[in-house]
């Protein structure tokens, strides 16, 4: 048997294939937007705006990707984000410190992660139900804290919020002659760090491969000596903590708390992960794909707005159409591959 050629190229794995498709489509779509719609798409700031607006979505999606790779689901992420925003805003307004608020955000995320992870892994309850309850709990607690919108009135925080990373090289000169550098918020840096962290975790750390193993075949993973329960527990902890971070980033972006913050974010996050090539059945997915999934999703929305479809319904109808396209594409690609085998 000619099995000794280690350097033979392996065919793309499902993860890589789905991610590549997404990246190609994203690039093509963006290029088309640059050519046809022009306007904002010609400026790098457009991408930075997309990142600024969606930093917290990216973070949440990363956590969700981890859970989904482990064949779970966490639909509480948006609600936890919202709860974190509201709690931190109230905490800051009642004389809390910045360090304290960061700590609070992480604790809330961790608490939700632990509670949900415990119920799902150790008591063997269906993840959908547990995280649905978590979502209700977080949403309910948010409104118990305050039904009315709250603005942060904390000087230190205002200063922190206003920190922007300016990149002159990617700036442009506005029609009125002013030079505007590309601006990136701190939250984006946090989001990028999260991506790098999760990427390394999934690829090079024992625990990360464990997520793939339990998602691929839970029974096998157990037989292979992986502590399935603990691994699953940790996947929800990661998702919970990332929701906490996402909440803080959200607050840095908006500077206010509102009971309807991050409404529907869980579904956007699931959509991002799916577009990025994560399968809900588990075992397949990649956090880079999720990042591009989020960008693709956002770009579609931007394109709809820029093409002058101003009626309020077009944005989500196109998003739905696009989602449909990606889902069908994945299905066709995966079915064809499976049939070949």
């Amino acid at each position: 048997m000619k099995n000794n050629n280690r350097y033979q190229r392996e065919p793309l794995t499902d993860t890589q294939l789905l991610m590549s498709i997404t990246i190609v489509i994203f690039v093509v779509m963006y290029l088309l937007a640059m050519i046809i719609l022009q306007g904002g798409f010609l400026h790098p700031q457009q991408i930075f705006d997309m990142l600024n607006d969606n930093a917290s979505l990216i973070i949440v999606s990363c956590g969700l990707t981890v859970v989904m790779i482990g064949a779970g689901i966490d639909i509480s992420v948006g609600a936890v984000t919202s709860l974190v925003v509201m709690s931190c805003v109230m905490y800051l307004n009642n004389g809390g410190s910045i360090a304290g608020s960061v700590f609070l955000a992480l604790c809330i995320g961790l608490a939700f992660g632990m509670m949900q992870g415990f119920l799902i892994s150790y008591l063997d309850i269906q993840p959908f139900i547990v995280t649905l309850a978590g979502m209700f709990l977080a949403r309910g607690m948010t409104t118990i804290l305050s039904v009315n919108p709250q603005k942060v009135e904390h000087e230190g925080f205002a200063a922190l919020r206003s920190i922007k990373i300016e990149i002159n090289a990617l700036g442009y000169t506005a029609p009125n002659g002013n030079f505007i550098p590309a601006r990136m918020e701190l939250g984006v840096v946090v989001a990028l760090l999260c991506i790098v962290f999760i990427f390394i975790l999934l690829k090079y750390i024992r625990l990360g491969r464990g997520f793939y193993a339990i998602g691929g075949n839970q029974q096998s993973a157990l037989m292979l000596g992986i502590n399935v329960k603990r691994t699953r527990f940790l996947s929800y902890i990661i998702s919970g903590v990332l929701s906490g971070i996402s909440g803080y980033v959200f607050m840095m972006h908006t500077g206010a708390g509102n009971a309807t913050n991050a409404a529907g974010m869980e579904m956007n996050a699931i959509a991002s992960s799916i577009i990025g090539g994560t399968l809900l059945t588990g075992g397949v997915g990649n956090v880079l794909g999720t990042f591009f999934g989020t960008l693709t999703l956002t770009t579609i929305k931007k394109i709809v707005v820029s093409s002058g479809l101003n009626d309020p319904w077009w944005q989500s109808i196109t998003t739905g159409g696009m989602l449909c396209f990606f889902i069908l594409l994945q299905s066709v690609v995966l079915n064809r591959r499976n049939r070949k085998k």
Partner: peptide, 27 residues
């Protein structure tokens, strides 16, 4: 070694041979 394959189909051969018994946290 069981009758039904108890490995993870979505991992590589090498990963299947070493997962669950790696030395250290890094792979």
């Amino acid at each position: 070694v069981y009758q039904e394959i108890t490995l993870c189909p979505n991992l590589t051969v090498a990963e299947n041979m070493f997962i669950g018994r790696e030395d250290g946290a890094w792979i």
